[in-house]
Amino acid sequence: MRRYALPLIMLILAGALQGYLPSWMVIRGARPDFLMVVVIATSLTLDPLSGGILGFLGGIIHGSIVGEGVGSFIVSRTIIGFVAGSVTIRFFSDNPVVPVLAAGVLTFSGEALFLLANPVADLGSSLNVLLIKSLYNSLLTLIIFWFLRWMEVRRKIKMAEARL
């Protein structure tokens, strides 16, 4: 249970932070999606089911604070969480390329899925925003992923010490 406490707290904090983004963080209309970053980074350290559950919770939080497209948020984030959890089974390594690539690809495909259900008027500029957002999320995911890995390693060391 304690394993899920930190991701949950991070999700709530990310949700609160998402509505207070300073204007300098918005680059050509794209803003980092903290909730999605937490979902991806955390799911990369979990199994597919846990990733899916976390994505579901992240979707509910994001949908609630936006107030629109709640269903689309839930579906897209749940899929993102599940796929991110599956990445750990197939490709897992401590190589930083994995979380960076996973975050970029998952953000792009997840948001594209979201836009299918919520079409926008200006597709060209939306695509631009999507690309910048994917890059943004990739970088942020790397930071959070490393932080979570560090926490996990510390936890395992403590457990090993306790056994000894």
């Binding site: 609160a16 998402q18 509505g19 207070y20 983004l21 209309g29 794209a30 803003r31 999606d33 994001h62 604070i65 936006v66 107030g67 629109e68 497209g69 979201f114 836009l115 919520n118 926008v120 939306s126 925003v129 957002k133």
Partner: peptide, 8 residues
């Protein structure tokens, strides 16, 4: 709180 998503 404002603009938590680019699309809305």
């Amino acid at each position: 709180s404002r603009n938590p998503s680019e699309w809305f």
